[in-house]
Design a protein around this nucleic acid. Sequence first.
RNA 1: GGAGAGAUACUCAAGUGGCUCAAGAGGACGGUUUGCUAAACCGUUAGUGUGCGUAAGUGCAGCGAGGGUUCGAAUCCCUCUCUCUCCGCCA
Length: 423
Amino acid sequence: MLNPKLIRDNTDKVKDKLLSRGFQEEQFNQYITLDSKWRALLQDVEQLKQDQNKMIPKGKPSPEQLETLKKLSSSIKEKQEQLKETEDKLKLIALTIPNVPLDSVPYGTSEDDNVEIKKVGEPQQFDFQVKSHDEIGIDLDILDFETAAKITGSRFVLYKGLGAKLERALINFMLETHEDNGYTEYLLPAIVNRDSLYGTGQLPKFEDDQFKLSDTDYYLSPTAEVQLTNIFRDEVIEESRLPINITAYTPCFRKEAGSYGKDIKGLIRQHQFNKIELVKIVNPKNSEYELEKLLNNAEKILQLLEIPYRVVTLCTGDLGFTSAKTYDIEVWLPSQGKYREISSCSNFLDFQSRRAMIRYKNIEENKTNYVHTLNGSGLAVGRTVAAVIENYQTKDGNIRIPEVLKKYLKVEEIKCLKKITSL
RNA sequence: GGAGAGAUACUCAAGUGGCUCAAGAGGACGGUUUGCUAAACCGUUAGUGUGCGUAAGUGCAGCGAGGGUUCGAAUCCCUCUCUCUCCGCCA
């Protein structure tokens, strides 16, 4: 949610920025109209209430007083109804207004306008026909999409033997690396309530992307961003505790509505996947700097795994609803011959903290203000497995184990010997 | 799942329709006294959200949340959330 005062005081600038990311002009104008109507009504109601407060006697009112008070009361009610109606409309729009991009975000309309800011590592030249990760995974009997489809449905996967171990090794490796960089680890509920989803901005706009549990107001969390950020919902944090750096491994659940036909095969787009999330709660004056740090912390994983990647800045048109600035880390996938998103690191400024009422307090000045929130994947584990498999594949169809993972897996290679079990 | 009890400010807590635009105590902070500390005494302590105002300021809301009744609600009614106790079930 944007600061209403910011919109009032900088209407033209905000409007320009919002239109650049595809927000409808008509909606924006409607918001402005409703906002001034709301303020006018609020002043009326408050004036009437003040009159009422002054007029209400200490004891029983006289018949004449009663008459006046009744009239006053009914006119308050009438105005109040108008106010509430306007307020509801206003809120509805306010909750669907996206964040305002920072000035450093490039203008653009689609992902084609994203700007590459760096490339790290050279994609390896293979002297054989590379296979995709799902092909290799199936051949080595460490990934099983068919059986997962039997148990559940499409876009689910089952890891087996060293495949399961590889996933678990990556989870541990990532968490330990982040811990070394000052993040505190959490283990969290996978199910969240509506308030939490409103707080981080998944609702009300993206209801269709969420798995809702029937007969309840619970949802399967689409990202640990929701749980981690909402830890601090409705809290006032002492300024000296900032920045707060936290991390968690969670399963994530997404309907992937509207992505039919995209990434049908493999681990890239699943309804359930594991992710390590990084969240920062920071002092507003530091958030731009903290985003760079967050990006570095996420990049570190791929650097240690020695897998090539690049970083792009999302343009205004490709920016997520809640974000003011986003860096995507894209990992090299040899079978696709291109870089694919594996992490998204964003600065939300006070957009989420306004919705979720996350504030900090400066004790000396006795001032409270909204914090800035940031988060990034560090990293999406399934996609990392895909990247490891593809980048570390050998001519004979095996997978070498990255140096940093050897201590977890205790093997040098995942080999195509025989099926691990007969099933 | 059943039965009961709760939720008031930093903490404890009074408060069954107007005398409370929330008493009192503790704590915290400030002051008087004091060689220093303590005690005693005096004072402050409703954070927050939001409107108007350049500002000083001023209004409104706020007693777990949301509705309702009423001229008037912490108080009465309805719905919900959470906490606690007991019973049942259970990894």
